[in-house]
């Protein structure tokens, strides 16, 4: 039904407040053939998902204005079903559990994961 240029299921939303990290993700994902949108806080990300459909969201936790967990909560409230992978540099057990409880399908620690690995994860999710 959607007649967008790129099929929505191949657009990735990167929600990350650290600009260099967001850019690196954007470049690598685009190189792999995906459409990428970048938001630097939970609030604008929420607006974005309300207006557009995405195939996947890569979500940071610690962000200004609205953090990642709050964003997940709001998505649940608004019944927006887009797979979310949490990318964080905290390794708090309670946060991991909370994120999964709020519907995140996966979780990785940025400092432990290479860009190549992240692209593989995204490809697996979106290309099936």
């Amino acid at each position: 039904m959607d007649t967008e240029n790129t099929s929505p299921s191949k657009t990735v939303l990167v929600v990350e407040d650290e600009r260099p990290l967001a850019r690196a993700l954007e470049m690598k994902l685009k190189e792999a053939g995906f459409e990428v949108d970048v938001m630097d806080n939970g609030k604008s990300a929420l607006e974005a998902v309300s207006q557009k459909t995405f195939g996947l969201i890569i979500l940071d936790i610690l962000m200004p204005k609205m953090n990642g967990l709050k964003f997940l909560e709001e998505m649940v409230k608004k019944n927006i079903e887009i797979p979310v992978i949490v990318a964080s540099n905290l390794s708090r057990e309670d946060e991991i559990k909370e994120a999964k409880r709020l519907g995140a399908v996966d979780y990785f620690i940025k400092s432990e994961t290479s860009l190549g690995d992240i692209v593989s994860i995204v490809e697996e999710r979106l290309n099936g």
Binding site: E18, P20, L21, A24, L62, S88, N89, L90, S91, I109, K110, S111, S114, L115
Partner: peptide, 14 residues
């Protein structure tokens, strides 16, 4: 540790 990991991630990815 989060604050330390962020710049380390930057170096790693770039």
């Amino acid at each position: 540790s989060h604050q330390l990991r962020t710049p380390l991630t930057t170096i790693s990815w770039y």
